[in-house]
Design a binder for these strands. Structure first.
Lengths: 335, 335
DNA sequence: CTGTTAGCGCATTCAG
DNA sequence: CTGAATGCGCTAACAG
């Protein structure tokens, strides 16, 4: 390194024999400058290794071109895909993103939200927030722009991007019905999960449309993991031996169910059909590959970011809700 | 939502009837202040919903308490785990992290690095950089603190955290040898991959120690994906029908190899043993579960972040190299 | 213990 | 087309 400090705009101005303002015009390509001086200034800036300070600029303009992305856990393939979607359009628009994991922890969620506020991000994308509605509202208020993913909160005038969980669940269960199944169990995920509740609705609706009723014994809550699914499936199958199909909260649970079948010596799909939700990469790779409902996760992120940009630029109703449709994917676990 | 702008330190000072500096002392708990005024100021600040501006603070202090984390692709479970490790210690130390994906694209890598420089991050963690050494060196220079993950660059005095790929590969191949295999193929991943080269070294070393020689025909490069593994395994197995075991560049490739075996009607592990590398979550969930070499990915991130903090604080030799050891995991694909 | 004076590096008026 | 003055919100020396 050149030993000295980083070059500032003043340094460049001095070296080029112009005013600071002229350098600014050159850097930001603001037009009101002659091509010759612009090129000369840019060349000198380049030579000096000048890098404009985003933070000084942010202080002056009150816009930071940064935003916060809050997710429960970016290791979860669901959220890492959403993250990529967000990032893709963010970068294309010149934004950088602070990634914040909450570990499904309310305390941490509060903390990152406060930190983002202090960082003066231009906007926040909040995925599957766990905070209660009232608190969320007050915490969201100080931000200029907030978009919720996987949770609606219309009353605050926040934008939201949602999956049509109910429709997705209906599609899956309809498919099971059409292939002859009548006794269909449901591993419902966490009781508190919004999408779990929506998927339960779809499950019931599909059964009702076939003039069947969801027996309460056929619904079992579980943690949304492979182990949770394995345990819950085992319990359910032991008490309800007449089930011929199992619809699962998500693919991880479904993989757990597959394991439970192996444990119990049940053959999938012959003795029990299994279906999941999300279509994570794993779904296609287990044996047998999972029938599931594909959620366009990347798209979810893209839409959320677009909506956020609209909010930041004031182009949009702040409170639009975008609903994205999932898609049935039929594989060997429930052909 | 009180209609007006956000409260500044001046506003709080005025409301509390003290100087700005006193507010600063209260907020930052700098001691030189009476407990009463401190508490009063804090209470008033709280009431006004005051949030200190990190960006103004950053401009004044020349430290931003932010850092950049550059990864090829955070959807890859390898990097999302590293990301979490980095984040965990970053948050504990009050740092926020800009997540930057490069899509394995050199152009993008340059772009994010420049952006991070403009953001005046306090440091950068660079995972598996794809840029040539010389360019990397010049691009790394303007940053106060850089830590490399998965790539060494001692000559610049950059810290680095590395996996002992060679030792890991040796362990896997030794295990295959010990279980009676003599004809062991290697699906080597991309030829340009540093870890691929190291793993090849370990593969050869293990064979040499058993007084065997790696026949060139037994090594096959492939893209580091399920499909890449499937294709490469098929080709290799068709030309080298005497192989009894296959060591794969990573778990994805190994899963592809498993698929190839299904395609070819080979039974794993009876007719062919298969081993992977990394121990991603998928490895335990495929059929049969994969024997593999566990890389402590989260730990990798933790170490990298710790090292970065040491650099930032000037506590450490800038150019330490930390090597983390992988661990053999034996499962059914190569018992 | 508290207040005053200077910047940090840039953008945004407004004059020339 | 270019330059000078002012302020963004905060910390960092110094004084009182």
């Amino acid at each position: 390194m050149n030993g000295s400090k980083r070059a500032t705009m003043d340094d460049v101005a001095r070296a080029a024999g112009v005013s600071r303002q002229t350098v600014s015009r050159a850097i930001n390509d603001l037009g009101e400058i002659s091509p010759e001086t612009r090129d000369r200034v840019l060349r000198i800036a380049e030579e000096m290794g000048y890098r404009p300070s985003s933070i000084a600029r942010g202080l002056a303009t009150q816009r930071t071109l940064t935003l916060g992305l809050v997710v429960p856990d970016n290791v979860n393939p669901f959220f890492s895909d959403v993250t990529r979607g967000v990032e893709h359009v963010a970068y294309a628009e010149g934004y950088s993103v602070f990634l914040c994991n909450t570990d499904e922890n309310q305390q941490q969620e509060r903390a990152v939200l406060q930190s983002l506020e202090e960082k003066r991000v231009d906007g926040v994308i909040l995925c599957s927030p766990r905070l209660p509605e009232e608190e969320l509202r007050s915490i969201v208020a100080p931000h200029l722009a907030v978009v919720l993913v996987n949770r609606s909160l219309k009353s605050v005038g926040t934008g939201a991007v949602l999956i049509d969980d109910e429709a997705g669940a209906r599609m899956v269960v309809q498919h099971l019905l059409q292939t002859g199944h009548r006794e269909i169990g449901f591993l419902a995920g966490p009781a508190a999960s919004h999408s779990g509740q929506q998927r339960a609705k779809g499950y019931r609706a599909a059964l009702a449309a076939a003039e069947l009723q969801a027996e309460t014994g056929c619904i079992h809550h579980c943690s949304p993991t492979v182990d949770g699914g394995r345990r819950a499936a085992r319990e359910l199958l032991e008490t309800q031996s007449d089930l011929s199909a199992l619809f699962c909260y998500n693919d991880l649970v479904a993989v757990g169910a597959l394991q439970a079948c192996t444990d119990l010596g049940l053959c999938v799909p012959d003795e029990l059909a299994v279906a999941g939700f999300d279509d994570i990469p794993l779904a296609a790779l287990v044996t047998p590959p999972l029938t599931t409902c594909r959620v366009p996760r990347h798209e979810l992120g893209v839409q959320a970011m677009r909506l956020l940009l609209d909010c930041v630029n004031g182009d949009a109703e702040a409170s639009v809700e975008i609903v994205v449709q999932p898609e049935l994917v039929i594989r060997a676990s429930a052909p």
